[in-house]
């Protein structure tokens, strides 16, 4: 890990094909900056990306990376980290990837609390498949597959995380570069599962949750009286707030990552050339 890593070292030479103005540009930039600021470099970083416009991030960033199947990025990231706790693992994907097809994994990844970060690029729409309702879409959000809106309340991902025993819950806005970077950095630094829901607007298919909407509705928690270590205060913000909060909403400072509780420290890739020395003992157990 060299200290002279610049965030552009995390950029691949592949030019993003996101629509001009897509929130994902800002989301990705902040992630790269946060990784560089926390002393990581591409050779010790592993990025796992979901499937969606958001998931393309794995291609545009330079590091060890895997772009898997829709909804399964979290288990891959957990496997990577447990097998080599020395790596910096960051998982990124869309709201559909994380809260619909991958919702089951989200709950359990939160519970497991492996030391990694999870950035969800929440545009409240399915971007890649050209504009269908997502689990965070509003109840009356009209799309080709929901002409009168989904008629179901949106998932509250922060509440889902809290109910699942999260140790770090944050929210950011992709165009507020400084705050976004700062919060993702805190998620990386957090000893455990650092979850950041990023409002990352889709300029092509979502004309409701727009830059203007966010700018008008966002409340930055650093500008109000909020103590992220206060569980009840966090609960209040998450459950009853009708405002779109950004910042670190909840952090359990006593969090101990799963792999640490399991005593995992060393990479698992080093193994002997043959069976372990005492392996015949395993056979003798069956006497």
């Amino acid at each position: 890990m060299s200290s002279d890593v610049r965030f552009t070292d995390f950029k691949s030479d592949k030019q993003p094909t996101w629509c001009p103005g897509c929130g994902d540009f800002g989301t990705m930039n902040g992630m790269m900056k946060a990784l560089a600021e926390t002393g990581n470099d591409p050779d010790n970083t592993f990025v796992v990306a979901g499937i969606g416009c958001s998931g393309k991030i794995g291609t545009y960033m330079h590091s060890y990376a895997l772009h898997g199947v829709h909804g399964r990025a979290l288990p891959v990231g957990i496997g990577v980290k447990m097998a080599n706790p020395e790596l910096e693992v960051m998982v990124a994907g869309g709201d559909g990837d994380g809260y619909s097809i991958g919702a089951g994994h989200f709950v359990h990844a939160v519970r497991r609390n492996v030391d990694m970060s999870y950035v969800v690029m929440d545009n409240r729409i399915y971007g890649l498949t050209k504009g269908q309702a997502s689990p965070t879409s509003r109840e009356d959000f009209e799309t080709a597959t929901t002409p009168e809106g989904p008629k179901q309340p949106p998932v509250n991902p922060l509440a889902l995380a809290l109910a699942s025993g999260a140790t770090f819950i944050a929210q950011t806005f992709s165009s507020d570069s400084q705050r976004h970077t700062e919060v993702v950095r805190k998620a990386i630094e957090h000893d455990g599962f650092g979850f950041v829901n990023v409002y990352s607007p889709c300029v092509t298919f979502n004309d409701v949750d727009t830059y203007d909407y966010w700018r008008d509705s966002i409340v930055d928690l650093s500008e109000v009286d909020h103590d992220p270590t206060d569980y009840e205060a966090a609960q209040e913000r998450i459950m009853t707030g009708d405002r779109e909060h950004i910042g670190v909403i909840y952090q359990d400072e006593g969090s101990v990552p799963f792999e640490e509780r399991e005593g995992l420290e060393d990479p698992m890739y080093e193994i002997p050339d043959g069976a372990p020395e005492d392996a015949m003992d395993l056979v003798r157990e069956f006497y």
Binding site: P75, V76, I78, K81, A83, N84, P267, M268
Partner: peptide, 27 residues
């Protein structure tokens, strides 16, 4: 120095093992 993980389902199980294998572990 290894670990068994009980996954939430088999979708996760195979992807957990895949991740570990990407890290170089025999999985």
């Amino acid at each position: 120095g290894g670990k068994v993980v009980q996954a939430e389902d088999e979708l996760a199980a195979i992807n957990l093992a895949l991740g570990a294998a990407r890290s170089g572990a025999r999985a």
